[in-house]
């Protein structure tokens, strides 16, 4: 997975997108986080989703737990200002250690608002 290439094959994430769509249809603000690249040992493959709504409800995951808290905080921001953002967590990033990506990998997460 050195170049972040991951065969998708079997999607497990349909329920995340369905939930995000349902929240949005109810008029709730929603942000969607997607793993867009990974290096080293990242627990979730490229294309994994985490959806967050304005009430702080979550569905899905982008890391198996280690960076979810930080991603949710960023997602709340993106929900407010509507500007998409690429987040980077990894061994070269001190913040990543603080938020606990101790699994030794590095990931990029794209966060966008569902308009």
């Amino acid at each position: 997975m050195a170049d972040g290439n991951v065969a998708t094959g079997l999607s497990q994430d349909d329920d995340v997108l369905n939930e995000a769509a349902a929240w949005r249809a109810d008029g709730t603000n929603v942000a969607l986080a997607t793993v867009v690249s990974t290096w080293g040992s990242s627990p979730r493959p490229v294309g994994s989703h985490l959806a967050v709504n304005e009430n702080g409800k979550l569905v899905g995951s982008v890391s198996g737990g280690c960076i979810e808290g930080a991603v949710v905080a960023e997602a709340m921001e993106v929900m407010k200002n509507g500007k998409p953002k690429v987040l980077e967590y990894g061994v070269t990033n001190e913040l990543a250690w603080e938020v606990g990506l101790a699994c030794g990998g590095s990931i990029h997460v794209y966060v966008e608002k569902v308009e």
């Binding site: 998708t8 999607s11 997607t34």
Partner: peptide
């Protein structure tokens, strides 16, 4: 065709391609 999600550099732009294929 390859069932692959990846960020590609297209003329200096970062384009993330995410594939939604039907199930295997």
């Amino acid at each position: 065709l390859d069932d692959r999600n990846k960020v590609h550099d297209v003329g200096g732009r970062r384009i993330f391609i995410e594939v939604f294929n039907p199930p295997l």
